[in-house]
């Protein structure tokens, strides 16, 4: 019996992903480390400011873990929420766990405390890169209904590995924001198929923007995290030059317009129009044939 990752709370995900009973939470809800700004605004606060952090075992290996709660302010990063992530990453640098797992579910900066959230996201980014440069793999797992957007979409792409489900989304600006700014003809936010073709897990997997595509199943996420343990990817001048070539080629050679199927065809997917109907294993089967165009 599988358990939907998307339908679990952040705390349930942590408990189910790690070896049973091994999770030890830091600054748990009982500590009531909360946002002072939401209180000032008269907006309901959360006792954990919407993020669970701590350590536990993943197949016997000690890992640090953070999970954002999408049900609280869309997983938005405020001052305290961001500081918990930064503290976890700084502690990883000190204590050297086997990996840091970040279950990202966030709309990005929490607009109620936007200035502090923006700085916090950049602090998370720098702290994450410190951990990565120390050779400790950072694994981002995205499977919540709110997706991973804004500053957290950038943070995710700074990690060693990204795991997504086909129900997940990874992007910068949400479709509603683009529609509000540039019109419905630019991006129809209510067209769910269009939204998923543009930002969903299958698309990100076929383009190599995520490394692993799994079913919406907590155990599948756990297995993917175990596979990524001990696989640190160093950032070097060479690796950044390769990334640059890949992104520049993609940008210059992409078909006109913003049609995902045309892009998939160009990548070598034979029947691109079928992609939205395929399940995760079938999509994984496609990528082997695309390896050449994704190689960086």
């Amino acid at each position: 019996m599988s358990t939907s990752f998307a339908e679990c709370s952040a705390r349930q995900r942590v408990g189910l992903m790690l070896d049973a009973g091994s999770f030890q939470e830091w600054l748990p809800p009982s500590a009531r480390v909360m946002s002072p700004h939401l209180a000032q605004l008269g907006v309901p606060s959360a006792f954990d400011d919407g993020v669970v952090i701590g350590q536990g075992l993943l197949q016997g290996q000690r890992v640090f873990m953070a999970a954002q709660e999408g049900e609280f302010m869309g997983g938005g990063v405020g001052e305290v929420h961001g500081a918990k992530l930064v503290g976890l990453l700084q502690r990883a640098l000190r204590d050297q766990p086997a990996a840091v797992l970040l279950l990202a579910e966030s709309g990005g900066v929490r607009l109620h405390e936007a200035n502090a959230g923006l700085i916090a996201v950049s602090e998370v980014m720098r702290a994450l890169l410190d951990v990565r440069h120390a050779g400790i793999p950072v694994i981002v797992l995205i499977g919540g209904a709110n997706g991973c957007f804004g500053g957290m979409g950038i943070v995710a792409r700074c990690a060693d590995h990204i795991v997504m489900s086909d129900a997940a989304r990874l992007a910068m600006s949400g479709p509603e924001v683009i529609e509000a700014s540039s019109g419905v003809e630019e991006f129809d936010a209510r067209d769910r198929a269009l939204v998923w073709r543009t930002t969903g897990g299958k698309h990100r997997y076929l383009t190599g923007d995520c490394d692993v595509l799994v079913d919406d199943d907590v155990q599948a996420f756990r297995a993917a995290a175990i596979d990524a343990l001990a696989q640190s990817r160093a950032i070097t001048l060479d690796s950044l030059e390769r990334e640059h070539r890949l992104l520049a080629r993609r940008f210059h050679e992409a078909p006109e317009g913003a049609d995902a199927a045309a892009l998939w065809s160009q990548l070598g997917v034979v029947d691109a129009l079928q992609v939205p109907d395929l399940d995760a294993p079938a999509i994984r089967g496609l990528r082997g044939a695309l390896a050449a165009s994704l190689a960086n």
Binding site: M172, S173, E186
Partner: peptide
């Protein structure tokens, strides 16, 4: 930039880069 094409092409990846 608030464009669908940029989202499709992974604007977050380019900015992270």
């Amino acid at each position: 930039l608030l464009r669908r094409r940029d989202e499709l092409l992974g604007i977050n990846r380019a900015m992270a880069h």
